[in-house]
Design a protein around this nucleic acid. Structure first.
Lengths: 345, 345
DNA sequence: ATGAAAGCGCTAACAC
DNA sequence: GTGTTAGCGCTTTCAT
């Protein structure tokens, strides 16, 4: 009754076994809910655990069982809704199956990503979630060698399990929308390094659509280092002051679009009369902005869910769809309109 | 030269030792950079690791060394900037010291939080970050019993290490600002359950400021279940249609404030002429909203940094400030103004 | 500076 | 149904 767990000696499974008057194997069985254990003994074990304040040692369990019950996830950064939202969904899902998440971020750098993945592998992750399909050449090598179920998110990739959408196509659709409105001078504001396959696919998509219309994207009108809203805003100022001011601006996400719109407004440009601006993702606030944003709606949560489901199924030896192609939806709102007729003054 | 790591047998430290012609102890020393090992042997070990494609088994290391090199973090949810941003900073910081983050979320539920913490303890986390100061009664018991360095964030708490700000004070300041503008009828829109100490402290702060001015917060004007922008928007509609329509609305964060403003605008209420609205956190977009938001600026990243620094220092046996009180700053913008003179029509 | 060997705390055969 | 026992792969005295 009065024996509080002593703060010094960490109680182990042996202690529990001793106290319950059973073998360690029986304790282990009770802990794992496996095999049938006589109810009286089961209770004795449970009581002993309770009284001793027993905490299982997962490192030992992992070592002995060769399963860690952890799943790794590596995202470029946590500091944007784009990744934190699917991650939240992912985590919730794996949790329901008893897994814990080991999280790392790559900061958009393939070398860092590889290092982080290696570390996660050292920790014995049972499965892994990645973002994008462009990684360090040795990354997949390591994963397959270790035989770890893994899924890529945000981009589709015929070579590996993946859930995402066709970025090229999505950008093409967005561009076509703008083209149909008569725009001729485009600009792109995105926020990530060249290693980012999603961004480069989108740029490709835009370029192709443009080319099909006999247009090109002026190199000076491609800004690829805007991460925050304010950076997008400043990028927009530069575009407006540049050699070839656009009438249509395609932004990497809704936050960047918001920044771009602000800059336009501050220059007394009317949206969409003077300039059209598009976003990506359809964040919750997109429709509520001063100029409701035309954007591509992406099921961010769904990405995390599907990724988790795939991994969980694979871990259970079940089969799951290896490729899931999500279809973003073009949402046309007030931030885009017909290209201005007059030549710029 | 040609012996690719065989995909079957996982190579262990013994294999490396064998190949390098040294003992396992020496390999371990090289791996840990500890003790002095003769350069020639060190090289031999490194080469063997490389050739064999050796990956250390952290479960084994953790078991033997009693340190996991992981740090746990439990946040209410990942799906909001409020927590994902400090978490990003936290993670980056602990990473630089070689730690990996084990992440769990409580979904604002103390029971869930306790369960998650227990699980993290099972995994052998070396330290722990928590949000808030109101937990399951047995939570701190477990942590102290296991002797795990731990810090609470967002709220300050004299009993335990913590980094945060005085929510009561902050809310009081915000309320005072509104009071000074002549407002008499207040409303509060927040998004979390009663177990959330930050929210309840803020409500208390507002109530006290109100009381000091001889006013009270109408129960009908306290909405505490708005999480998303749209929920805040709907909450606002209800307030406006309620028995006691407010002229001043205090929101739990900038996103909720955004939603509230939208609802007001949709009802053709002028901001701030007819109604004043405040946020919290000063998200990047707050100043760029159609009605620039009056809010409290909180150093979200700083919270994560300080928490990490404290834990890291403690882990190193150094001393670090146990209490860090951050001071939010009132940022007055266009979303607040003098209370309307006329009685409502 | 290096090796031998004893664990760390658990699981999983295998016997009974 | 239950106990015995041999590891899992590493770190860490303790000798040398």
């Amino acid at each position: 009754m009065s024996d509080k767990p002593s703060p010094s000696a960490r109680v182990s499974l042996d202690d529990v076994a001793l106290r319950a008057g059973v073998s360690t194997a029986t304790v282990s069985r009770v802990l794992n809910g496996s095999a049938s254990v006589r109810p009286s003994r089961r209770e004795a074990v449970e009581r002993a655990c309770e009284e001793l304040g027993y905490v299982i040692n997962r490192a030992a369990r992992t070592l002995a069982s060769r399963r860690s019950m952890t799943i790794g996830a590596v995202v470029p950064t946590l500091a944007t809704e784009t990744f934190s939202r699917p991650l939240a969904a992912f985590q919730q899902q794996i949790h329901q199956s008893g897994y814990t998440m080991l999280l790392a971020s790559s900061d958009f750098d393939p070398d860092t990503e590889l290092k982080e993945v290696n570390k996660l592998v050292e920790y014995g992750i049972d499965a892994l979630m990645l973002v994008g399909n462009s990684h360090h050449p040795r990354l997949w090598e390591r994963i397959t060698q270790q035989n770890i179920p893994c899924i890529q998110t945000f981009s589709v990739d015929a070579r590996y399990p993946s859930v995402g959408y066709d970025n090229e196509l999505a950008a093409g659709e967005l561009t076509a929308h703008l083209l149909a409105l008569g725009h001729k001078v485009f600009a792109v504001i995105v926020g990530t390094p060249p290693s980012n396959d999603r961004v480069s696919d989108r740029i490709t998509g835009t370029r192709q659509a443009l080319a099909a219309a006999g247009l090109t994207l002026d190199e000076a009108n491609l800004i690829n280092s805007a991460f925050t809203m304010n950076e997008a805003r400043e990028a927009m100022f530069r575009l407006l002051d540049g050699p070839n001011p656009p009438t249509a601006v395609i932004c990497g996400n809704d936050l960047l679009a918001f920044g771009a719109m602000r800059a336009a407004s501050e220059r007394y440009l009317r949206i969409p009369n003077d300039i059209s601006i598009t976003g990506f993702n359809d964040y919750e606030y997109a429709e509520h902005l001063e100029h409701p944003l035309t954007t591509m709606r992406v099921e961010l949560d769904r990405i995390g869910e599907v990724a988790a489901d795939y991994l969980l199924a694979t871990l259970n030896g079940e089969t799951a769809p290896v490729q899931t192609l999500l279809k973003p939806e073009l949402i046309v709102r007030g931030s885009t309109g017909s290209a201005p007729r007059a030549a710029k003054g």
